[in-house]
Simulated assay, not measured.
Amino acid sequence: MSLSDSLPLLAAALINEAGFGYPQGLYALIGHPVTWIGALISRLDRMLNRESAPFIVRKAAGGLALALLLAATFAISWGLTLLCRGLGPLGWLPLALVASSLIAQRSLHEHVARVAEGLERDGLKGGRMAVSMIVGRNPETLDEAGVSRAAIESLAENFSDGIVAPAFWLGVGGLPGGALYKAINTADSMIGHKTPRHLAFGWAAARLDDLVNLPASRLTALLLTAAAALDKTSDPANAWRAVRRDARHHRSPNAGWPEAAMAGALGLRLAGPRVYGEVRVDDGWMGDGRAEAEAADIRRALALYRRACLLLWGLAVAGAATALAL
């Protein structure tokens, strides 16, 4: 798919998803592409991941599972692209609708906003309940500042891998590019854990996810820094300082970039030591501001996120216009 096809598709998908999201009625009727991908990953995990097998065999089985997942994803997404192209000019509408399902601007905003609402309405209990829906750490270990930081960290990281990354790969490779990214990212979230069952089997998915998220994490940091320059209450210079100083100290090769940019822009300190289930994770701090975040800081982070989304739309529209003009 050429850029004159993929970039207009990206622009349409971003704007459509922000305006309408994924219809609940459609989800109830046929599910969602991510649920279909997840079902295939679960089936491959059950079929190929034998706990009695040697480590190297399980590692190879994980690579095979990933290859089968990507082959199926490419075949279906490319087939849909060809089918929609066969419909003529009207084919862009269903193609954009399918592409928009790979992006999560609206749902991310809604889930993070619920954490602020929970804190404001029901205090710590409400905040813990809402944040438990979007993070893997144990909410009972979090005070109000911890709940607020967790929500803001989730917003920053998911802006990168739930929005900017699928948008980047949609722009590069059309629907197949976006769908392949989503398959890799979903595989990492399901089997890319360092648990006894998935340490070997999920290795390929985790490493490939790190690789395909690399360009988007850097672009996300730039978008958040630029968005900070559009508002007097945010600090773009501090955002960029935090990225340059702190991003490489995050335990993830990619999450530190958006989290550091968000922390610096808002004058906060994010990440640091955290508890996932019963396991304490020692991580570097992103930013050097206040650690005592609150619901108002979640609101500020959401405002920064909305401005960064607008900048992403602008890049997509400008890219589409340029590609069509060439």
Rank of each mutant, 00 (worst) to 15 (best):
L230A: 09
D246Q: 13
L7D: 01
A206E: 11
R58G: 05
G287K: 08
A167H: 10
N254W: 09
V34P: 03
F20S: 15
W285R: 00
P176F: 13
I152V: 15
S77Y: 14
L270D: 03
E144N: 14
V34K: 03
G202C: 08
L268S: 09
R244Q: 15
P139V: 14
S4R: 14
A18C: 04
S100D: 14
D143A: 09
P139H: 11
L9V: 03
A205G: 12
I163V: 13
P273M: 05
C309R: 12
S148Q: 12
D283P: 01
A271M: 11
L102T: 08
E259Y: 09
S6T: 08
L80G: 05
A179P: 13
L7H: 03
I37A: 12
A308K: 06
A206V: 03
L14I: 00
G289I: 05
G86T: 03
H193K: 06
A75E: 06
L124N: 01
A308F: 06
L175I: 13
D231R: 12
D235P: 00
I41V: 15
P176I: 13
L170A: 03
R244N: 13
N185Y: 09
L44G: 02
S154R: 08
H111P: 08
N158Q: 05
R269F: 05
L108D: 08
P54Y: 15
L270T: 07
W285P: 02
E153D: 07
R244T: 10
N254F: 11
I15D: 00
I163Y: 03
I15H: 01
L304N: 02
R241L: 11
R218D: 01
A96N: 13
P166K: 09
T81R: 11
